[in-house]
Simulated assay, not measured.
Amino acid sequence: MADLFTPLLAEEPAREALADGAMLLRGLALPFASALIEAIHGIAAISPFRHMVTAGGHAMSVATTNCGAAGWVSDRSGYRYDAIDPETRKPWPEMPECFAALAELAAIQAGHAQFRPDACLINRYVPGARLSLHQDRNERDFAQPIVSVSLGLPAIFRFGGIRRNDPVRKFALHHGDVVVWGGPARLRFHGVAELKDGFHDQLGRQRINLTFRRAR
């Protein structure tokens, strides 16, 4: 499926190694951004964005929705994947072909072949929203990488180590950038600093992040 996008790449993306197993692919998603944004609108029309509640009872500043065979869910009982949207009581929207193709292409570009995502968490940030340091641990197979696509306003990506108190590095992410981490970097702590105000010509005063995972 990655071949769907390969012919559209005018040149190889600029690569920045973040750690062993982690790569930042500058602008990889730019040629496909319009298709991705159109698909996001379609997904949100079926399963609207909402502010989920953490296990501690706090509403997340980031609004979320999902697509794919499983969706990431957070509530007072904890964090998990579920095939059913708890608000609509219906299955999450199917993952668009352009989503899966880009995720697979990014994984290949970063050295993680054979990635087939079955879940995409879609996070919507507005100015002031942030995502605290955390590990992605709810998936069954940690051998599969994480692929994260940035759209809209720029953000600061925080990338730490395997332990919460390890040093944290900061990377500026722009519209179209893709971060992939797997292998020895798969369980590194990561997060997003508080989003600064601004305006993007396609998404306005917001940032959308697509996080692709193999959940099951």
Rank of each mutant, 00 (worst) to 15 (best):
R89A: 15
R89S: 13
K90N: 09
P91C: 07
P91S: 02
P93V: 02
P93M: 01
E94R: 13
E94G: 14
M95R: 09
E97V: 14
C98A: 14
F99E: 05
F99T: 08
L102N: 09
L102E: 10
E104Q: 15
E104G: 14
L105N: 08
L105D: 09
A106V: 06
A106L: 03
A106D: 03
A107W: 02
G111F: 03
H112K: 08
A113T: 13
Q114I: 02
Q114W: 12
Q114H: 14
Q114G: 11
F115E: 14
F115G: 12
R116Q: 13
R116P: 03
D118S: 11
A119L: 03
L121E: 07
L121R: 01
I122L: 09
N123A: 14
R124D: 00
R124V: 01
Y125I: 04
P127A: 08
R130T: 14
R130W: 09
S132Q: 08
S132W: 01
L133T: 02
L133Q: 04
L133I: 06
H134Q: 06
H134P: 05
Q135K: 06
D136P: 01
D136R: 04
N138M: 11
N138T: 14
N138C: 08
E139T: 08
R140H: 13
D141G: 04
D141T: 09
D141A: 07
F142T: 14
F142D: 09
F142L: 11
A143M: 10
A143C: 11
A143Y: 10
Q144N: 02
Q144Y: 00
P145H: 06
P145N: 01
P145E: 04
I146K: 02
S148P: 05
V149F: 02
V149D: 02
S150N: 11
G152F: 10
L153I: 07
L153H: 08
L153N: 05
P154D: 11
P154N: 06
A155G: 15
A155W: 06
A155L: 08
I156Y: 01
F157R: 06
F157Q: 08
F157P: 08
F157V: 07
R158T: 12
F159Y: 14
G160L: 10
G160D: 11
G161V: 12
G161S: 12
R163T: 15
R163F: 13
R163E: 15
R163W: 09
R163Y: 13
R164E: 15
N165E: 12
N165T: 13
N165C: 00
R169D: 13
R169V: 10
R169K: 07
R169N: 11
R169C: 11
K170D: 15
K170C: 12
A172D: 12
A172S: 07
L173E: 00
L173C: 04
H174F: 12
H175F: 05
G176E: 01
G176Q: 07
G176V: 03
G176K: 05
G176M: 02
D177R: 13
V178H: 03
V179K: 05
V179A: 15
V179Q: 03
V180T: 08
W181K: 01
W181S: 00
G182V: 09
G182Q: 03
G182C: 11
G182Y: 05
P184S: 03
A185W: 05
R186C: 05
L187K: 10
L187S: 10
R188L: 00
F189T: 04
F189V: 05
H190T: 10
G191H: 00
G191L: 00
V192F: 11
E194R: 15
E194G: 14
E194W: 03
